[in-house]
């Protein structure tokens, strides 16, 4: 592992980085001056960011820098925590997600989330995937079975579990459980997938599978991934944002952020001087 992060990106993309092609991708999610507070503690400071559609955006930074908090504001999962508040705006395709008329349930169906620790429900594999469509009102068995099969296939899990769909999801291995959770969030047919350190609890082989999966999924989904693993960011992402002490220090194409960071803090972090 003596390759630099920039080399990892270059090798992966063969030099044809999206930015250099001159194509400006559509913006899926954006925030303006987003600040976030846990009670009196401010966790995010005036974050302004544009997240391109059908791209993988990695958010990196040291522990406690606010990257996970930021991720959870994008589908309003922070609403669940008592005593939190925010200022600023988050847009999903130009619509303010904090607007009073917005149904948070509908928002979370469009903006799915995968957590750091795999969290399969204590139900069968089938029921785990079918849960989202079911609570959305889908009752037809045939439709549910189709959704389960296609989601498991998209999450590269079908071959391993197709003959044991009735078994408990908790009987799966850690890596399989995480892919199950990805499949589960695909079942509500989201446009955006938020991933909060999806591979941090997995072994290298499982991590590689998840990363391959992320690479495939960006064909159809906008993916935002929080990771503390910079090699992972370099391997899977198109653009990278560096968070530090609740602020977005730098955001740009992954190649540029790793090869020519504009800010000293970014460079210090990437070269391992802190963090």
């Amino acid at each position: 592992m003596s390759m630099s992060f920039a080399e990892i990106v270059e090798q992966r993309q063969g030099g044809s980085v999206a930015v250099s092609a001159g194509v400006i991708p559509a913006i899926k999610l954006s925030t303006k001056n987003l600040s976030f507070f846990y009670g009196e503690t401010q966790a995010l400071f005036e974050v302004t960011i544009d997240i391109p559609a059908r791209n993988v955006t990695a958010l990196i930074g040291p522990s406690g820098c606010g990257k996970s908090t930021f991720l959870r504001t994008l589908n309003r999962m922070n609403d669940i925590i008592e005593g939190t508040r925010h200022t600023g705006t988050v847009w999903l395709e130009g619509a303010d997600i904090h607007d009073k008329r917005v149904d948070v349930v509908a928002l979370r169906k469009r903006v799915g989330m995968v957590f750091q620790k795999s969290t399969p429900f204590p139900k069968s594999i089938f029921d785990n995937i079918a849960y989202g469509p079911r609570i959305a009102g889908e009752k037809r068995k045939k439709v549910l079975a189709e959704i389960v099969e296609s989601c498991l296939k998209r999450a590269a899990l079908w071959d391993e579990v197709s003959n044991r769909l009735k078994e408990s999801a908790l009987s799966l291995s850690g890596g399989q459980q995480q892919r199950l959770c990805i499949a589960r969030s695909l079942a509500t047919d989201p446009e955006v997938l938020l991933m909060d350190e999806p591979a941090s609890a997995l072994d290298p082989a499982s991590t590689a599978r998840i990363e391959d999966l992320i690479f495939e999924l960006k064909e159809n989904y906008t993916i935002v991934i929080v990771t503390h693993n910079m090699q992972q960011a370099a391997r899977v992402s198109d653009s990278t944002g560096f968070f530090f002490q609740g602020q977005l220090i730098e955001m740009g194409s992954t190649l540029n952020v790793f090869r020519r960071p504009k800010e000293q803090a970014t460079e210090d972090y990437i070269t391992g001087r802190f963090g």
Binding site: N75, R108, T119, F121, Y131, I135, R184, T188
Partner: peptide, 15 residues
Amino acid sequence: VPGSIRHGSFALGAT
């Protein structure tokens, strides 16, 4: 019941 179960459910658009 761990909070992760609740969060997982909320994240899938459950009320």
